[in-house]
Structures are given as structure tokens and as C-alpha cells.
Simulated assay, not measured.
Amino acid sequence: MTSDAAFHPTAALDETVHQRVRLGVLAVLSEVAECAFTVLRDELALTDGNLSRHVRMLEEAGMVAVRKGYEGRRPCTWLRLTSRGSAALRTELAALEAILKRHGRGTA
């Protein structure tokens, strides 16, 4: 195999994005301009520590931006998808769609 087109679609899956929680974070953030950490935690049914670990990895990869501040007197953390994160999610979804098409379950 010498061209990218010859590779199996799974070769396009990104190890950073493909993990279930990180894919969930990117998917949820793609639906909103910004999301509070606690809302994302509840939406994905995670613990604070588990979500924090995955958000840190995505932040280090430049896929998620983190903003800390206050909501009233309470500390709050907000997350948003970066352009790199949006592109990574699109690439991941395209790879998943290619896998589905290979198995006769492509999208219309």
C-alpha cells in the first residue's frame, strides 16, 4: 500500500480523539459555543476527576480551550472547542463514516 487511499479507514482514527470520553467532550462542545464544566460532566455522566484528566489532554493537544472565572461568587470553569478540535472531530467522524460505508451502513 503506497497511497493514503489504500489504507483502511481505521488508520485515520486519532488516538487522542477516539477515546470514548474525549470523543464525547468534543461532540458535546461542537453543539454549543461554550459549556460549563459541571454541565459537561453531568451530560457525559463522569466524575470531576475523570473529566478533568480528559479535558487536560484535549487542552494540551490544542483541541479545547479552558476559561476559569466566577459565576457570582462561585468559581466556574467553561470549555469551548477550538478550531483544531473542530477539525479533529470532523476528521474522526469522516473516518467513522468510511468504516460504516465499508460495512454497508453508510449515511445517506
Rank of each mutant, 00 (worst) to 15 (best):
L58R: 03
F37V: 01
M57K: 11
C76L: 11
E15V: 07
E43T: 05
R102E: 10
H103T: 07
L51E: 00
V55Q: 10
E71R: 14
D42Y: 01
L93F: 11
S30G: 07
P9D: 03
E71I: 13
C76Y: 06
M63H: 05
V66T: 12
R74I: 08
R105I: 14
A6S: 06
R102L: 15
R102C: 11
L46I: 02
N50Q: 11
R56W: 09
V25M: 06
L89G: 03
R90Q: 15
M1T: 12
G49M: 08
L29V: 00
S3A: 06
G69C: 02
F7S: 07
K101M: 12
A27Q: 10
M57H: 12
T16I: 07
T82M: 12
S86T: 11
Q19P: 07
A61Y: 03
G62F: 03
S83V: 15
L51S: 00
A5M: 07
M1D: 10
V25P: 04
V55E: 06
D48P: 14
V25F: 02
G24D: 03
R22K: 06
R80V: 12
S52I: 08
T107M: 14
H103I: 06
R90M: 14
M1E: 11
L79G: 09
V25Q: 02
L93I: 15
A36L: 01
V66I: 13
S86W: 12
E43Y: 04
G62N: 04
R41V: 05
H103V: 02
P9S: 00
E97N: 14
G49S: 15
M1L: 11
R20D: 08
A6R: 06
A27R: 09
R41T: 05
A108H: 14
L26R: 00
G106Y: 05
A45M: 08
A65C: 04
G24R: 03
M63G: 06
V25Y: 02
D48C: 05
R73M: 09
K101S: 15
A98M: 08
M63Y: 06
D48N: 09
T107A: 15
G62P: 05
A12N: 02
T47G: 15
S3V: 09
A33S: 15
A12G: 05
